[in-house]
Design a protein around this nucleic acid. Structure first.
Lengths: 190, 190
DNA sequence: ATTTTTATAGAGTGATCAGTCAGTCTTATA
DNA sequence: TATAAGACTGACTGATCACTCTATAAAAAT
């Protein structure tokens, strides 16, 4: 087995349950089934482990999204895909998503390089830019539109986590709220 | 001077800068200008301090909102007041608001009693209930409407933090986005 | 076959930190 | 004024933790 992956998986599980400072490196090593020192063979410091875990998870999410997007489809479809697939991914990968949020409100965020951060928003920025340039979006600042999209996405995900509905109902909520969002940010009359 | 308040203020400042585990109780005491042991005279444990700080801040926010609400005004005005005043408060009390978010994604949240949590959503629940019963809102689950409101509120706040606009422009963004939100969740045609 | 490099182990270490304790100072009350 | 109660102090402690170090085993390179 790949000990590095074991360590990251163990860390994720423990961080979500006990928080960053609530999980000593010794517990991570134990949970991963390796010796204490082995952890420091793969990661120079605990912080490096945390940051790498974050980047790894973000890459997974990004890879997933890219695999679902098709440049040939119209903007609305691609936006819908991003919206729906993001929520679905977050529902399936609960620990990972919670970890991302935890990480975002921690001082560790500052340790992520600017490039790494930029890499993760590039796709969204491209989509939003397209919407603005093609005048499909309302005449609002592009960042504001991005914020509206992101926050509603987070919100609807939170709603689905708090109220466990059958999968079909979940899909309905996602579809309905996307229509609401689309009406809000575009000039299109339905 | 009130040492308990000094301690809470010092803790807030340090927590926001260094995170919960990044700030030892010794530093909090020093920053507050009191002896180490005094901290434990007022708070049995570090965790109690953190939780009390959270509740204190939430009470302040709630008190502020209540002072701005007038039962006589129509629902739309009251909702707008909640929306606008929440964002304004968060902009003025940056540290407090950041702390709330930090706290929300930490294991400490579990230590807040159910009553304390309920107390903080009562006002919002009442407003939302009124909107549903009066059929002003669309026929959507009340929690979903609440989520849509809350998430957009958070989002617009984040947008204003990331882009520093003159106050008049800020007000414009708040007004505009409230109209968008209101159109999204109500049946009213503008 | 021999050397070098890499992976793994786990006991050990120095620093840090939450929380204690024994005692002093301040204030209120009798 | 005497006494009690509460506020306050800061040195101290026991535990914990991130990280190191030495040693060994496995794998790769020569």
């Amino acid at each position: 087995m790949d000990k590095e992956k074991e360590l990251l998986a163990a860390a994720l599980k423990l961080f979500v349950e006990f928080g960053f400072h609530g999980t000593p490196t010794s517990k991570i090593a134990k949970e991963a089934g390796v010796a204490n020192g082995t952890l420091f063979h793969y990661f120079k410091t605990k912080e490096e482990l945390i940051v790498k875990l974050y980047i790894r998870i973000k890459e997974e999410l990004n890879g997933h999204m890219l695999s679902k997007l098709d440049d040939q489809t119209p903007l609305e479809i691609r936006m819908k895909t991003v919206y729906e697939e993001s929520i679905q991914w977050a529902l399936v990968h609960r620990d990972e998503f919670y970890f991302i949020q935890q990480f975002h409100f921690s001082p560790h965020l500052a340790k992520v390089s600017a490039e790494d951060l930029e890499k993760q928003t590039r796709m969204h920025a491209a989509l939003l830019g397209e919407g603005v340039e093609s005048r499909i979006f309302k005449a609002l600042p592009v960042n504001l539109i991005g914020t509206l999209l992101a926050s509603q996405l987070y919100g609807v995900h939170q709603y689905l986590v708090n109220n466990d509905l059958p999968v079909s109902k979940q899909k309905e909520v996602i579809d309905e709220t996307f229509v609401l969002l689309w009406q809000m940010i575009t000039n299109i009359k339905s």
